[in-house]
Structures are given as structure tokens and as C-alpha cells.
Simulated assay, not measured.
Amino acid sequence: MTSTATTTAVESSPTWGVRDRILAAAMELFYTDGINATGVDLVAARAGVSKRTLYKYFPSKVNLVEQYLTRMFEFVVEHQKVQTGTARQRLSALFAVPQAGGGQMRGCPFHNAAVEAAAVMPEVAEFVHRQKEAFAASIVAICRDLGVEDPDLLGGRIALIYEGAAALSTSLDAVEPWARAGALVEMLLDME
């Protein structure tokens, strides 16, 4: 999910309404430029609406951020649902190495939001906390499908490796942490 930040209107489907355009603009800008660095003026300009119209659909920036994160979480859930194969293949798919040169590595939108919102948007921090717990629980559930002796322990380790790969790839702006993390998970799975 990489893009260049400009103030041109967001390309949209003819079936998209104003709310969808605003949310699409926010998703792109919050992810690529950051929540704190992106003002509602820029989101409105990118969506091709007035600031007043933005506030009609999203009464506050906090509400807009929460809706952005809700949509991102829906994408994660949908991605997990379409993953097919064995439990091991689904775990391995979590560590697919992104293509190099696809733009700056921005990492996990939830982690980014937690860091940015820590002091100024406690509602967002709470939302991120719930999402991270749900993500870790989904990994534990896949480990249960594997039939391992302690799915909570293995799932917790894999979630930790995933979070570390996301953070390090962002910090280094590199794809190699994903490859290393995937190899480590394969080694853990081989030990089960």
C-alpha cells in the first residue's frame, strides 16, 4: 500500500459515494504520510470535497482515523479468509516477502496508528489494542488447526515474529526482515 501524496482527487468507482471517496483518501494519506502529518484539509482536497462535507460524514479526525483502521482491519480479515491450503501454508503466507521497489516500507497501519495516537487519541490506541489481540488470536487459531501441543505458545511466538518483521522492515525500508522471519517460522514449525 504505497503511494505518492498529492492533492489530486482520489480515483473512484462510479458506485462510490462521497463517504467512500473521503475514506479512500484518508486510507492512502494516513498510511503513506502518517496520521499526525495528514490534516483533514488534505484529506478533503484529495477526496475532492469541502472540509464541511468531510465533517458531515466523519464528525472528527478521531472518527475518521477509527474508520480508516476499521477498513484496514476488514482488509486483513478478508485476506485471511481467502487464504487456502493447510494451516502451515496459511501461516507461511503471513510472511510472504513484499516486492522490493514497491515504494517505502510503511509497516503495519495499526502499529503506526498506536505510535502516533498514543498521547492524543486514546480511543484509537484502544482500537489498535483490540485489533492486535484479534490478530494474535487468529494466529493461535491456525496453530490449533495444526494440532500442535501448545497452540497458544506457538501462536504467540509467531505473532511476535510477525510484529518484529513488520517493524524492522519499516525501520530499514527493506524486505529482508520478512524473508528472515518466514525462515524462522518454518524452523519453529519443523520443531513441532
Rank of each mutant, 00 (worst) to 15 (best):
L64R: 02
E78Q: 14
E78L: 14
G48M: 08
P98F: 12
R71T: 06
R71H: 09
Y68D: 06
G39A: 04
T86R: 14
Q104E: 08
A44F: 10
E74W: 07
T32S: 07
T32W: 02
G107T: 02
V40Q: 12
T70S: 09
R21G: 03
Q89D: 06
A93W: 10
R88H: 12
P59K: 02
R52G: 08
K56D: 08
V97A: 06
L42P: 01
V77T: 12
R71I: 02
G85F: 11
E74D: 13
A24H: 11
F73H: 11
Q80A: 11
T38M: 07
C108I: 01
L23N: 01
K81D: 14
L94T: 00
E78Y: 06
A37M: 05
F95R: 04
Q83M: 15
A44W: 08
D20T: 14
I35G: 01
K51Y: 08
R21H: 02
A100T: 05
H79S: 01
T84F: 10
N63I: 09
V76C: 12
V62Y: 05
A45T: 11
L29W: 09
V62A: 13
Q80H: 14
N63E: 05
V82Y: 11
D41I: 07
T53S: 12
Q67E: 14
F73T: 04
S50F: 06
K56Q: 14
M105P: 01
D33M: 05
V62T: 15
V82N: 13
I22V: 14
L64F: 02
Y68F: 15
V49C: 02
S92H: 14
V40W: 09
E78V: 08
T32V: 14
A37H: 03
F30K: 00
N36Q: 04
G85D: 02
A26C: 08
Q83E: 15
R21L: 14
Q83L: 15
G34Y: 07
T53L: 07
R52Q: 04
A26F: 01
Q67A: 12
L69K: 04
V40M: 11
A100C: 00
F73N: 11
G102L: 13
I35M: 09
R90A: 13
A44C: 08
S50C: 13
V97M: 11
A44S: 13
E66C: 05
A87I: 14
L64C: 06
H79E: 07
E66N: 07
G39H: 10
P59E: 02
K51F: 07
S60A: 10
F73L: 08
Y31T: 06
S92K: 10
V49P: 01
L69F: 03
Y57I: 12
A26G: 03
H79Q: 06
L29E: 00
T32M: 01
G85N: 03
V62G: 03
Q104G: 04
F73I: 05
A47E: 00
A96S: 14
T70N: 13
L94E: 00
A100K: 06
L94Q: 04
C108A: 00
T86S: 15
V40T: 15
P98N: 00
G107D: 00
F30N: 02
E78A: 15
E78M: 12
I22K: 04
A45P: 08
Q89K: 15
